[in-house]
Design a binder for these strands. Sequence first.
DNA 1: CTGAAAGCGCTAACAA
DNA 2: TTGTTAGCGCTTTCAG
Lengths: 359, 359
Amino acid sequence: MTTISDVARRASVTPATVSNVISGKVRVREATRDRVLMAIAELDYRPNLVARGLARGRSEVLALLLPDIANPYHAELAREVENIAYAHGYRLLVRATAYDVGAGRAYLRDLADRQVDGLLVMGGGLAGADVCEGIVQGTEQGPAIVLCNWEEDVTRLAAEESPPTVGLDFAYGAALAARHLLRLGHHRIAAIVHGTTPDCVVHTGRLRGFSTALAGVGVRLDDGDVCYGDSSSESGYAAATALLTRPERPTAIFATNDLMALGALAAAYDQGVRVPDELAVIGFDNIAMGAYVRPALTTVGAPTRDLAIEAMAMLLRGVDGQEQRVRHLSVRPSLIVRGSTTSPGRAPSWAARPGDVLP
Amino acid sequence: MTTISDVARRASVTPATVSNVISGKVRVREATRDRVLMAIAELDYRPNLVARGLARGRSEVLALLLPDIANPYHAELAREVENIAYAHGYRLLVRATAYDVGAGRAYLRDLADRQVDGLLVMGGGLAGADVCEGIVQGTEQGPAIVLCNWEEDVTRLAAEESPPTVGLDFAYGAALAARHLLRLGHHRIAAIVHGTTPDCVVHTGRLRGFSTALAGVGVRLDDGDVCYGDSSSESGYAAATALLTRPERPTAIFATNDLMALGALAAAYDQGVRVPDELAVIGFDNIAMGAYVRPALTTVGAPTRDLAIEAMAMLLRGVDGQEQRVRHLSVRPSLIVRGSTTSPGRAPSWAARPGDVLP
DNA sequence: CTGAAAGCGCTAACAA
DNA sequence: TTGTTAGCGCTTTCAG
């Protein structure tokens, strides 16, 4: 391995000068610089970035902590994050927590020890305010942190001096879904939510927004109308099968993510329940696949790229030690109407049709 | 930040002793070790892993280079790879090349500069033997490298002293698909392949295996029967639409990956072509989603986890400088028969039915 | 503008 | 068993 000293020797200068040439921060006489550049080229020298990291106190590595890389929504987000990171000269460590909070906390420490300069933590991988505390605590002199897509109320986080956050307004998005279903005339409505029991819901904002919007027009979402899943298609399939084999089956299902919604679509098909004529299905996330199932999936979502851009902008600002002017950013998703809620021409004139994007 | 010296001072020993306690490689008297451990606990000391990496000459970081993290197949593989890496104490840098060979090469260098201990390079991210050369060349004293899922012929790679490889036998898998279609009585068969032109095919092994198997029974796959895509659902949709609007449309389509197959399924639906009655569709990869579309997708695939385990075992062996007993491993995929090729009860008795796995 | 020197935090001979 | 010493490869004052 060729080091900076090798280059220095060859160019008859000291390592310091080579370093200056490379960094460009200090003026170097043209002639010497050329000699150094030449030596670099001849020896095919490339700086050892670990050593540089140690000396500079920053590693130029960011980390992305997310619940599950195999969930297309997170994968699509990871792709954007990664591109932005690399565009800014950072590499990206990725770690999935499999929705395990304990594991997530451990990774957080580990990544800090790794001297990552910044950490983007996706909601679902960790949970609740106590973790926030933990993060903040461990953050003294640690990596910059941005929370992305956390379900918890931003204002509550803000009150606790949490790290900056950026994410969707989940409650608003779910309300769009609810209103869409109501306009289509549905009143026997069920939800499939990521969580295990009523007191242990992961997609809290989405469920709250949905039930609140229904309650607003007097439609109640009973405990019995809520089924629980784990964000996988499999769990969505199971939950929907249970719902559709009840004596009084729902005419509409809102799943709090697209994978579960896709599972629900499959379950409906297998039960011989026609979508959208006998059952409307809405998802959340707007993953690419939703546009390629038939009927295509109506869903709630916001541009993943924009979200990634905002989150990374915050993170990079944090890494550079800049003040965050906006500490909490919330993007309003919209409803992407497709065939799983209405067949063209069959919806009442005041309801949205496939192709519409609300609002 | 608390350093090893802080701990040493507090425990009235030298940094070296602290280091010994931590590594456990050198015997330390019980009493002193307790003092050190206590100091570590009191100061909440955690070693700076970058510094350790510099001193030890290894970073405990692996990197995964893949074409596209948003492609579920790669995401599912990444999940397994990541878990294995962490289970062995390694972190994982992930980088997608977006099928850009030039970019892939650049990342390769960059990751080497980052002192990653090992590199898992997925096929599609780079291409051809020339890159292999480049890798090998840059590998003198560089990170250990394993190639995974490369389409190129393993024997050819082997001849050039390539890095170890592990992957599927793509040609074999495609042949399974071909035979399945033939048994079902299809003879107007088309393929949607990742590539741009006949001389610029990415999924070379899959196409070759498919057309060879057809040719074996006298069915020719003309240039006109092959459409090109880029592994996305969108491209599969476009290609299938083109195929299905031809005057003489095919009765079966083999897409060289699942996303394209899923796009083809959507295209058939939109063209009013019933699957599987009027059109059979087969994909490749066996992504999770394929089981949740309706009709469910018949596809070729092998257990992703096993593949990841084999690849990582090779890589870790390489990192540890061990000799590779088996340098090239090829896993035989099987055909997972689902509804997109046969409706239950309608296929001839000698053909595979939904639920079958071949061979 | 360039060189000398110190040090980032940790490890690994070797001595004591 | 523990301490001393010398780096890993690079950056960064500070002199010259």
